[in-house]
Amino acid sequence: MNVPAQLRYSSDHEWVRIEGNRATIGITDYAQDALGDVVYVQLPSVGTNVVAGASFSEVESTKSVSDVYAPVSGTVSAVNEALTSTPEQLNSDPYGTGWVCVIEMSDPAEADTLLDAAAYLELIGA
C-alpha cells in the first residue's frame, strides 16, 4: 500500500499536503482500494466553509458510497473538476491527478494533529 512519507493523514483515510495555509486533500491508496472502482465524486463548491471532522464530499464506487471528511477547517479554494468526468483518477492516481480539493486553513495548527506516514501505516496495519 502506497503511503507517501511527505504527506499527512487523517484517521478517516484522507491525505493532506500542507503548503503554507493551503491544504490539498485526497483519499489514500488504502481508501481507494477498499472502495473499489470509483464512478462518481460529489465535489464541494469553491467557497464552502468546512469544519474538521465533518463530511464535505461523497465518493461513490460500484460497491458503496463513502463520505469524505474534512481533515482541517477552512474554506474550499479549489476543486478538481476533472473528477466529474473521470472519477477513476481516484483509483489510478490517488495522490496525484486524483486530488479532491484545496482548503485554505482557518487554523493551521490543526494540521499538527494529523497523522504522519508512519502513524497512518500503523493505523491501516500495513
Partner: peptide
C-alpha cells in the same frame, strides 16, 4: 468480489 483489474 473482483480481481486485480476491478469491477468496471
Amino acid at each position: 468480489l473482483q480481481y486485480a483489474g476491478g469491477t468496471l
